[in-house]
Every structure is written in C-alpha cells, then in structure tokens.
Amino acid sequence: MDLLALADFNLVARHGGFGRAARATGRPKATLSRRVADLESSLELRLFERGTRMLKLTQEGRALYERTGTLLAELEEAAAAITSGGDRPRGRLRISAPLLFSQTAMGKLAAKFALKYPEVRLEVTTEDRAVDMIEEGYDLVIRVNPDPDESLVGRIFLRDRLVVVASPSLGRPTGDRAVSAVVRETGDPTTSWDVVAPGGNLRITAEPVLCLSSLIMVRDAVRAGVGAARLPVSLVIHDLAAGKLVHWGDVDGPEIALWTLYPSRRLLSARVSAFLDCLKEAFPSGTPEELAAFID
C-alpha cells in the first residue's frame, strides 16, 4: 500500500473534502484527488461517495480511516520526536468536555496545562452530547457515565454522587406533600426522587417550579430558596458546610463517574498522556471532595 496515498486519503477524510484539504494544506486539489483514486484502485474499493456538492466516506472508507488515522499520527509524532531530540508534548490537542466540569474546573486545568506545556495548542469544546471522536477530530473526550463504545478506551478519573439539598428556609418533606423543586430536565410537571436519608429511605414527590439548563443555575436558584434540587455533592459541599444549604439525603441511584476516553490504540500521543497526567495530579484519588477543593 502506498503510504503517501494513504496519508492523502486521511487528509481528505479529516477535512471532509478535496477542496477543504487542499486549502488547509496548500496541496493541489488535483494531486489529492489522483492519489485517493490510485489508492481506491489498488484496494479495489470505493472509499468515498462523491456527490455534486458533498463527499462522504463509504463504510469501507470509514473503517480504513479509523484504523489508519491514529497510526499515521503516531508515525508523525515519532518522526517529530526523533528530529527534535525529545518526546515533549507539542502540537494541537482537541478535547471535548461536559458543561458542568468545564464551568467549574476546566478553565483552571487548561491554564495549568498551557503553562506547563507551552508547545501544545489546547482547544477545549464544551458540550454534553456524545461526540464522534474520529469524525470530529477530537484527541480526548471527557464524559459522565458514557455508554460502552468498543472503538474507545478510557478510565474513570473522578467520582461524584447526587444529593438532594434545599435552603434552610424550605421545610423538609413530610408525608405525601409535594415539595417545590428546581430541575434541569424538561418533562412531567411532577416527579419523584428516591432518597437515602439518615432516618431511612423515602420517596420525595417533587413539583418543578423552575427548569434550568445548567446545574450552576439550579444551585443558585436553590440557594435563593425557590425549591429543592438534586445536585452533585461536589457542587454544594461548601454551601452545606457553611449552612447555606441543608442535606435532605443521597439520591438512591448509580454514582456519577467522569471518564476520559480516547481512540483505542497501544501508544497514546505525548499530548494526551500529558493531559491525563495533569488530571491525575489534580485529582489523585478522584473523590468529590478533591473536585470541590479544586474549584473553590
């Protein structure tokens, strides 16, 4: 297989078209098109579906891109390390992180990383959706309780748990009386929370009075006494200690686990490894208390 043709195929796949790849790299569009056509002929496979206004990977093309993209990146990094006389992190590092973690911790983490590794251009995108790492060009994603994905590997670096909290001015739930609630999700006008409390398990009937898109907003509304809410304990530890909020109990359910995910491969890039080390340094035990202390 022609390695140069394979590299040009990956270039076109990564940029989503011959014209875009040519403009991004300064390579002639005709050369890229010819190299990809030669690769298709040698493999006897169509790697792209070519429309009048769009270019799309075929199933075989996507499989080839996923299996060879990281390999080519490792070859480039190895060559750069040899020619520079070292393997220090350098180049572009793209990360996708969830909203709450980005709002509370990623700014400080990114700053520390940038100061320690000035030759890395770190780019962080905030979004809660499940991104396609290969298609969208991410080197690392951070996700909360992600669904299993055979194409990715990863590990948990932080654990948290949900608690029900409220302002001291809001009376604790008694009997079947519904309590005012601040929620993040849209849905039914009433809901129920299963809570593990010191006095035993209970079910709280919650009547949403506010629906907000950010847990930071939810916490601020709860502080103001609007209603109770389910929130990560790391987000309210300081308020509970100061008496600004009271703890009604822990939510009966699975823990919150923050994962780092990256394409499955034997060797990680120096950039990804450096960022993973940065997370380990910030959260050595991965507890909610460490996160709360970090964002204080």
Rank of each mutant, 00 (worst) to 15 (best):
E127Q: 13
M133D: 03
I82P: 00
A130F: 06
L64V: 08
R53F: 01
N145W: 06
G86N: 15
G26E: 05
G69R: 14
V120D: 04
I95H: 03
S41I: 00
S84D: 07
E136R: 12
D160W: 04
L72G: 00
F157V: 09
T104R: 15
L55S: 05
L93K: 14
R62D: 05
A81S: 15
R159G: 01
N145Y: 07
R159W: 03
N145S: 06
K56W: 06
L43F: 05
R92W: 04
A24M: 03
T52S: 12
S96R: 14
L158K: 10
T83A: 13
Y138D: 05
V131F: 00
R92T: 12
F157P: 07
G86S: 14
E44P: 00
I134F: 07
S42M: 11
L71K: 12
A97L: 10
L75H: 10
R35T: 00
A37W: 10
G107T: 09
E49H: 12
A78M: 11
F113E: 01
R23Q: 10
R92P: 04
G61A: 07
L158P: 02
S151T: 13
L72A: 13
A130K: 14
T70E: 10
E60K: 12
F113A: 07
R129N: 09
R155I: 00
L140D: 05
P28M: 01
R159E: 01
F113P: 05
A80E: 14
R27K: 14
P89T: 13
L39T: 02
G61T: 01
G154V: 03
A130N: 09
R90E: 12
T31H: 06
S41R: 14
A130R: 13
R67K: 14
E123I: 04
D132F: 06
F157T: 12
A105T: 08
K108W: 01
S96G: 12
P118K: 14
A114P: 02
F48P: 02
L115D: 09
L152Y: 03
A81Q: 11
K116A: 15
L71M: 11
V131N: 10
I82L: 15
G19A: 13
R129H: 11
F113D: 03
Q103P: 01
A97G: 02
D38Y: 02
L57G: 09
G51Y: 12
A24Q: 09
V36R: 06
A79C: 05
G51A: 13
E135Q: 13
A73Q: 15
T70K: 11
P28S: 07
P146A: 11
A114W: 02
E119L: 12
E127D: 06
